[in-house]
Amino acid sequence: MTEEHSEGLAFHPMDQFMVKPLFGDGPIHWYTPTNVTLWMAIGVLAIVLMLVVGTRGRAIVPSRAQSIAELTYGFIHKMVEDVAGKDALKFFPYIFTLFLFIVVSNFLGLLPKAFTPTSHIAVTAVLAMLVFVTVTVVGFVKNGTHFLGLFWVSSAPLALRPVLAVIEVISYFVRPVSHSIRLAGNMMAGHAVIKVFAAFAPLVLMSAVGVVVTPLSILAITAMYGLEIIVALVQAYVFTILTCVYLKDALHPSH
């Protein structure tokens, strides 16, 4: 009896990640406006509202919106300066762009029915590769072959150094993988779990068990949502601070 009812529950936790065309049902070409386009555009709009419209007063004593913009600016500016050093500040707009895109995408993705670009490995892999390529190029341009000293741990015993070099090289190339999968995985997992709990919520309409299950699932959704708010910020923070750490390696490769 119950089984028959629970068949009515729709489990599509991954549907929220589907890339769909905005208009019509056609195939997705690289230029097709999709829900990706829509939510990235909303993200850009949010950033413009926060950092451009919010600061239009240029007030010495800031308004609330301007305070938010200034605090965000100060937060990342200080992070770049503290972690990567003063000479990394010329990369600050670049790092700030990454942080804002990730944090805004993460938070917008928490809206019901929203699409989360940062839950896609395609997006986070591009972000991570941008960082990886930038760091590698900057490392070689700034330090030349000294940049390879990053892999040659001069503080270790000589016999161990070749072994460590192999490990260092591997870990260097694994960086973009972990960098991107960490973000996408976190975003995807949380959203999927919320969706799974949400699928249990309408059970009260179908079965007597729902009297217990529905409140529990709603409670679980609320708890997960709270956790996801933290994760949204923490993952953006982690991505950004790792970018700063990698950049520090490129600028000052000596251990």
Binding site: I28, V44, I47, V52, T97, F101, A122
Partner: peptide, 22 residues
Amino acid sequence: TSFPNQIFWLLVTLVVIYWVLS
């Protein structure tokens, strides 16, 4: 099949954000 689309729009978005910021 959705990768080119996502990557294209991501790059557009990043360029726009970078432009607005800088």
